[in-house]
Nucleic acid binder design. Sequence first.
DNA 1: TTACAGCTTTACAAAATCTTAATAATTTTA
DNA 2: TAAAATTATTAAGATTTTGTAAAGCTGTAA
Lengths: 225, 225
Amino acid sequence: MNKTEILIIDDEPQIRKLLEIILESNDYKVLQAETGKEGLVKAANHPPELILLDIGLPDSSGQEILKALRQWYSKAIIILSVQNNENDIVTALDNGATDYLAKPFRTAELLARIRSAIRRNQTTDNTSVVEIGNLQIDLVARTVKKENALLKLTSTEFNLIALFAKNEGRVLRHQFILKEIWGITYQTETQYLRVFVGTLRKKIEDNPNQPKHIITESGVGYRFQ
Amino acid sequence: MNKTEILIIDDEPQIRKLLEIILESNDYKVLQAETGKEGLVKAANHPPELILLDIGLPDSSGQEILKALRQWYSKAIIILSVQNNENDIVTALDNGATDYLAKPFRTAELLARIRSAIRRNQTTDNTSVVEIGNLQIDLVARTVKKENALLKLTSTEFNLIALFAKNEGRVLRHQFILKEIWGITYQTETQYLRVFVGTLRKKIEDNPNQPKHIITESGVGYRFQ
DNA sequence: TTACAGCTTTACAAAATCTTAATAATTTTA
DNA sequence: TAAAATTATTAAGATTTTGTAAAGCTGTAA
């Protein structure tokens, strides 16, 4: 059987080597590019299942490469950034990045993110029912079940969880969520979001104080899983 | 034995060709139409077991073709839509589509949907009596029994409960219900609905103040269960 | 014509949901 | 670690949505 192919675009040889070792030992096939341009060419010639892109590239900003890729490449792109360079991360998510990882990263987290992103590639599926853990979200019937018990959600609460469900595992920015649910004029009303995430957590989480489904990514947004 | 016939209504020749290849190699007989009109004619002359309909047709909206087909055609209609055009999909399901597929689609998924839809053709058929809890709703005889006692419903009340029964467990929007029962020009007369839901509840619910059958989904519509 | 059933409309009460602001808790930064 | 920033929680109005009763309207049949 063919191995899943991952393209690494990063100018630091030692990072590439590290990633190569981790990924190959987990049964992925690794392609490498040292510059953004080289990455674009390799991705175009032979589209991989996922791309790991360093946004701190020297030749041209990694953001430009990301935008260029997103012209045609629709599979997962995970961004690598230096520690907590929040601006870069936020810009990258807005430019269509699937997810991000701050360097230095933990191996387990890297692999988990990769698995999740690849899984989503394949779930272009469009069944109206999305199953996530103990939740079943029916987008057409507009119902949510937790362990087969129907939950009572308000319309806005449902819209919110539906948006999350359609973007499972992916970080959604506050702005983006507000725009989608409340409309473009509400982009700055992050407090709404906090209140509604709070009520949703009370309804869907086993322990709302330690949420397992709606994870907050401080300074960025939320992730649903 | 005769092969199962599938009619494709799609204006893009390359999509038709692709579908033809996939379907014929899976032992279906394929009929094709390039326009909605042509599709209506072909379907009428020789009703197929299943129709694949592109809702992005140029001549008249695919939605109109769907509605026209549903006047008399009761077998499966699977909608093809461009990716993530959610509005189209929801409208199509409301207009009686059996299922939908977003382009580009995976072959395995297409075939799975087709098999499932055809299977349903044969089973879902002519059960004119819908049983829900202590209610028996006979769609052909237009009667409703509650614990075997015949209820006296007006024609509009029956139309309403029949619509609910056909969409058990699903949230129906005010708009949709009004369109179905009173016609497209009544889409904003939500007050009618409130009155009729009220009278229906008095007749079918054990305790109309705590309805168990007709559940209101505030801001959205009603759900029947 | 009248009686009647069923539909439409109005008015108001009740319930559900949303918004807002104050405060507490947590996370990030320096 | 302390300060700053961000996030979470709560609860009270405010607003929107829904429910109910009843009056008016309309067509039909006796």
